[in-house]
Amino acid sequence: MLLRRCGTDALLVEVDSIHEVAAVRAALAGIPEIDELVPAARTVLVVGGLTEARRALENIDLTAEHPSSTREVVIPTHYDGPDLQLVADTARITPERVIELHTGATYEVAFCGFAPGFGYLTGLPEELQQPRLDEPRTKVPAGSVGIAGEFTAAYPRATPGGWRLIGRTEITLFDPRADPPTLLAPGDTVRFEVAG
């Protein structure tokens, strides 16, 4: 674990894996002096409350299993994405098996970024861990469910994107007038199910 200075009132905590990120986030969550806590792939950004954050990180056990969130979100998905066949071919399995694998796994929101409410979910079965498209799409429709590398995600709104799209959901992922505004927050447990 490395603490990197990020201006006068922020710290970037750098670790070696997404699991260690979760441990750092869990250790710092709930410290009232911290203004912003932003987990990412290998880092956690801490803004404000640096004294308290440093103290909490002194005795942290990065290998410990952090308590999982009590919040579980289910995302009903129509598995008819334009890249479903490509994903199946790449994994040398059938599209039906892709759906089975994707709905069978339990995911965790590792972090949000890229766009409001865009959660990067870890827990993707190994067969589905595949590279991004060679040519990103200029417009990915809102609700698209995709995979890229170790992550799966649902697009809260239409944006450009290079993830392989396997399905779509009609669930609202981001509504700036709702409280909370995002369906997903770091630490949440997520499952996908076939939409009826």
Binding site: C6, G7, A10, L12, E36, V38, P39, A40, A41, R42, T43, V44, L45, V47, F111, C112, G113, F114
Partner: peptide, 27 residues
């Protein structure tokens, strides 16, 4: 990708700095 603060001076591959202001991406 990692978290970005307002005021961060990001340097893309072209070497020309960008100072992040209030509507900056979070990562």
């Amino acid at each position: 990708s990692e978290g970005m603060v307002t005021g961060a001076v990001q340097v893309p591959p072209n070497g020309l700095p960008v100072i992040f202001l209030n509507d900056h991406p979070t990562t």
